[in-house]
Design a protein around this nucleic acid. Structure first.
Lengths: 243, 243
DNA sequence: TATAGTTGTCTATATCAATAGACATTTAAA
DNA sequence: TTTAAATGTCTATTGATATAGACAACTATA
């Protein structure tokens, strides 16, 4: 974990240090002991006062990642970073099935609306045609992993919100609606700072990073069936592309 | 751009606001006027003092994204985002060939070293075997887009640093060294905050976001020829995966 | 040439972030 | 039972962040 923290950047030192420690934990840097190094050691490493390190650790404790025990040290409670393979058969639930015990997709809201230019391009329909929009949040073992906004052609998949609410899975909902299989056509990936809504929904600290995917799924004939913009907590996930 | 900023989170208000405005610009929110709304309007929108908004705009001006003109307003200077397709034939230079006039790869430094566990896993060699490491920065039309650390098996590609320095391209350097074609095997994508070294190399503002790719390229027989960790300025690029 | 609207500069004040040091409290091991 | 090593708590001080208000300087337009 080389490299010093930066001052006067608008990001407090304690937050930078919290981010770095969180990353080191998820990279397995402290697996040998299962503990974060002592505060005095970290303060020396980062070139800051011990109190500043304490602020960082307090933030991580608040997130449930570590637990400080007086006299012993700071224990690591949780270190997951979920991996999402992106392939022709990209599935949210199945993709991380072995990495978490319980995967759930929750429907926050939905509505029927007219496709704007972006959605129309994704679904290969004309702007103004009716689409179903769903806002969802997806959780692994109860911890929120991503928010998604998904659009479906209204004519073919009008029953999607109801089916999704019942099955908590896009794949199962598609199956119920007569589409047993579908494939990932394109995926775009960018990264931005989280805004307020996503910070709340994903239980992030402000200034946190989001990985954004814009994906088009099609049926086996290549007809688009879903356009989705998903927002992932960058410190909890990574994507893998296998060619 | 609804939603208020958050206080006491370790991220200064001016930085949160700068991030939000940057995002709004790149989403085309101000395309109609080509200008950012007046400081007083933004201050009202975000629920902060006008001086706080001014700090945010000063940061964006420092990045070259906007230019404030007394008496007129704050003009948008730049809003582009380069697209990188990730496929079997992923090439940095050719990939964005049509999006920029001039693509260059510059060799910052190189050395011969022994493979650590991560590099050995990527190149499918034993830890400790000799590898060539190159630190490079890649530019589009003179503007830095990414930093990369790349490793090559030393025996087969000892001449890589010299060839790369001459050709400014991995693809051309491989060709010179007797490898006319290669394919992308795997790509991992994550996102983090930029550290000090990358902030300097990519001419970023502190606290900026990096998209990280860890990629393995192989020859046509599937033998790994390159393991590379690239760090992209997230506000200048996006990735596209076509299946 | 006024005038409205905009950015630029200055002073002052309050709060948050960071440093510094001292000492208490708890745990585990000598 | 000591002792070393770790976290917890307290006070004090400095610098960065944020607010508040007033006014100057510049631009475009009526």
């Amino acid at each position: 974990m080389a490299g010093q923290v930066q001052r006067q950047t608008g990001v407090a030192l304690w937050r930078q240090i919290a981010d770095r420690i969180r990353q080191a934990i998820s990279a397995g840097a402290y697996d040998e002991t299962g503990m974060v190094p002592p505060e005095t050691v970290l303060a020396l490493q980062f070139g800051v006062n011990r109190h500043t390190v304490r602020s960082a650790i307090a933030a991580l404790a608040q997130e449930g990642i570590v637990r400080a025990v007086q006299g012993r040290g700071t224990l690591i409670e949780r270190k997951e970073r979920l991996n999402f393979p992106i392939t022709k058969r990209t599935r949210f639930t199945a993709g991380i099935g072995e990495q978490a015990r319980e995967m759930r997709g929750l429907l926050l809201s939905y509505s029927e609306e007219k496709a704007d230019a972006e959605v129309a391009r994704g679904l290969k329909i004309r702007p103004g045609e009716p689409v179903i929009r769903m806002e969802t949040v997806r959780k692994a073992d109860g911890s929120p992993v991503s928010c998604a906004t998904a659009w479906f052609p209204a004519g073919r998949f009008g029953g999607m919100p109801d089916a999704y609410k019942r099955t908590e899975s896009i794949t199962k909902a598609f199956a119920e609606l007569g589409l047993p299989d579908y494939v990932r056509a394109t995926t775009e990936i960018t990264a931005v700072h989280a805004d307020e809504a996503d910070t709340a929904a994903l239980e992030l600290s402000p200034g946190a990073i989001l990985l954004i995917t814009k994906a088009v799924n099609t049926d086996l004939e290549g007809v688009p069936v879903q356009y989705a913009i998903s927002r992932f907590a960058a410190d909890r996930v990574q994507f893998t592309i296998e060619n």
